[in-house]
Design a binder for these strands. Structure first.
Lengths: 218, 218
DNA sequence: GACGATTTAGACAATGCTGTCTAATTTTAC
DNA sequence: GTAAAATTAGACAGCATTGTCTAAATCGTC
């Protein structure tokens, strides 16, 4: 309801075909995510985008083309955000626990509670088998890259901080697993945790992580 | 292809309507999981079950009834297995690391790599929004109960083992998160890890868990 | 071997969706 | 203001699906 009003307002108020492409992509993401590929109807997307059905067929030749465009679009955005977050990984050891917890909050907020991230996760899990190459692409660009990049960051951090890590890849995977521990269940559907919950959860995760990998040294 | 042969062989060889009900439920789970609710066609299910379409309509009045029956059926099985696994949680401290790792392997194998478990997870994520009460039910009976039960088991274990746990619920959630750390990605679609991979992964998880929560004592 | 219940194959109407087409209308650019 | 490009509403064929119905075939049981 609300989404529809906003989207159609967008399409009508803004000018040019670019605005319509955006509006269509947003509406399509919404409907595909809600109904799955086969459940989503072009008409529904058209209404939600505030656009005529023919316009959709003009921009994206067929349903499958539109679907691919949606995935590509969301994936690009998610990846952009992801790497901007990774760039904020702590480099000093002064406030290790606090810095790591803040980093964990950023990661969770932007890569798990994010609308885009939830979309991509659901779409991958729903339609991943139908489009193996798409799935493969996401896998390499998303979790694959994150884990490796995070491992490298931990390796760098270990030079200046009292960390006793022998397998950095493992530590990175476990770090991610720990900070997602509390959000796993709620994340499967709509629930979005509050800022406070995110912080508490991150702090607990980091505390456990440091108990496992931190050296008592100073 | 293979599934079809097996299922129809079942339906034809075995006797009575009970066998057909089972055959239909299995085929329906398969197709619903592969295609989603709207993508799945009754005809496809009928063929895969080796049964006529009318028979399905005789047993389950309509598509939605069948869908509910599938969920209910799988959920019952998964829950049964789950609690039988929980009953094997270690009670002694002799071989803590090995026992916990073996327990983790059992849990992962039966509750994550399991066909049923994968089905239920995908179906919940795909159709959870369409059937909120179903989703709620799964949430309470599944992860909700597991976490609490596991917390109680850790509490009991802490009496006899050198464990320094102050929040048992948290420890339980983190234990589960850690033992799933390596399987997260592959689990989203078809990949099933080998026995050896499961063991290595579990061992690493338990090792980290004990580094965080184990006392050097004993 | 026969009777009652179940199952089957197939036809069937109703519905909804995709993707195309057209003719009218609006927007954009100059 | 005008001409070209984009958008719209609507009709349309083709197709798949759901759920019903019927008459024949098969099965379980006595």
């Amino acid at each position: 309801m609300k989404k529809f009003d906003l989207a159609s307002a967008d399409a009508r108020s803004q000018k040019g075909q670019f605005a319509k492409r955006v509006s269509i992509l947003e509406a399509a993401a919404d409907v595909f995510c809600r109904e799955g590929f086969s459940g989503a109807s072009i008409d529904e997307i058209a209404v939600e985008a505030g656009v005529s059905r023919q316009t959709i067929y003009n921009h994206y030749r067929e349903k499958e083309t539109l679907f691919m465009a949606v995935i590509q679009d969301i994936m690009d955005r998610v990846n952009g955000v992801l790497f901007s977050i990774l760039a904020t990984f702590p480099e000093r050891a002064d406030n290790l626990e606090e810095d790591l917890a803040a980093f964990a909050v950023r990661l969770n907020k932007n890569c798990n509670c994010n609308q885009d991230a939830k979309f991509i996760q659901k779409l991958i899990s729903t339609e991943g088998n139908r489009y193996p190459h798409l799935f493969q692409f996401w896998r390499e660009q998303g979790p694959g890259k994150t884990d490796r990049a995070l491992a490298a960051l931990f390796a760098r951090l270990a030079h200046v901080a009292p960390l006793d890590i022998d397998d950095f890849d493992l530590a990175a995977r476990q770090f991610i697993a720990l900070i997602k521990a509390d959000l796993q269940m709620g994340g499967l559907f709509g629930e979005t945790p509050s800022e406070a919950e995110l912080e508490i959860s991150a702090r607990k995760a980091v505390r456990t992580f440091l108990r496992a990998y931190g050296r008592p040294a100073a």
